[in-house]
Computed example of a mutant assay.
Amino acid sequence: MYMGHYAIALGARRWLRPLPMAWLLFASIEPDLHDVLGSLVPSLGIGPDTHTLPGACAAAVAIAVVTALVFRRIGLALGAGLLVLSHVAADYLTSRLPLWRHGPMVGLHLYATPWADFLLEAGTIAIGLALYASSPDLRRPARRGVAAIAVLMLAFQAVWNFGLGSG
């Protein structure tokens, strides 16, 4: 659900304007980045928990603390932490993941039904970009680019869901 995660970050910008877009995008995919880091450096021992509730909560707190230290605003810190949590919440829609290590597997697993996953992602992209485009400080040239971003995100999502050679 990368496009959906990015769309959530874009939408969150409406309320978290002082945070750089890169910060928002990072927070929105932090569990996946953490997962990759755990795979690359197994001695860190973080891999199995990145997409569990305890792992996501720990990551959200860590990102919130770093955000609070860097930007010195609790509201921004809470927003960045919520973006981390939004990642796992969204993944429970698209995947089946354990609630905790060796815990029960939950989720709708929409990846198994590509058209349903695509519709969820497309809706998330539409809402996220609508929120982004309505951000009060967004300049007019950037607003004109939102439609192009939407087409690009939907195209990437279609390739993810349906592939290039599915004809």
Rank of each mutant, 00 (worst) to 15 (best):
Y2E: 07
Y2V: 11
M3S: 11
G4F: 00
H5Q: 03
A7W: 00
L10K: 02
L10Q: 04
G11A: 01
A12W: 07
R13S: 08
R14C: 09
R17H: 08
L19N: 03
P20D: 11
M21S: 09
M21R: 04
W23A: 13
L24H: 06
A27D: 05
S28V: 00
S28W: 02
I29Y: 01
E30C: 13
E30M: 12
E30N: 08
L33C: 08
V36N: 07
L37V: 15
G38Y: 02
L40Y: 06
L40F: 07
L44A: 02
G45N: 04
G45C: 05
I46P: 00
I46M: 08
G47V: 05
P48V: 09
T50A: 08
T52R: 04
P54H: 08
A56F: 00
A56D: 04
A58H: 01
A59C: 11
A59V: 10
V61R: 07
V61A: 13
A62C: 09
A62G: 09
V65H: 06
V65P: 13
T67D: 02
L69Q: 06
L69M: 08
L69C: 08
V70M: 06
F71Q: 03
R72E: 03
R73H: 10
R73E: 05
I74H: 04
G75R: 14
G75P: 04
G75V: 11
L76F: 01
A77M: 04
L78K: 00
L78H: 00
L78Q: 00
G79I: 07
G81M: 01
L82Q: 03
L83W: 00
L85Y: 00
L85N: 01
H87W: 03
V88P: 04
A89E: 06
A90G: 10
S95H: 15
R96V: 09
R96A: 10
L97M: 08
L97G: 02
P98G: 04
P98C: 03
R101W: 12
R101P: 01
H102Y: 14
P104F: 11
P104D: 11
M105E: 12
G107S: 04
L108T: 05
L108D: 01
T113Y: 12
T113V: 14
P114N: 10
P114A: 10
W115F: 13
W115A: 14
W115Y: 12
D117A: 15
L119V: 14
E121T: 15
A122P: 10
A122V: 09
G123A: 09
T124P: 09
T124C: 14
T124V: 10
I127D: 07
I127T: 13
Y132L: 06
S134P: 07
S134E: 10
S135C: 13
R140H: 13
A142W: 01
G145A: 10
A147S: 11
A147D: 05
A148H: 07
A148P: 09
A150I: 05
L152F: 15
L152P: 09
A155P: 02
A155K: 07
W160N: 15
N161F: 06
N161L: 07
G163C: 04
G165R: 14
G165C: 11
S166I: 09
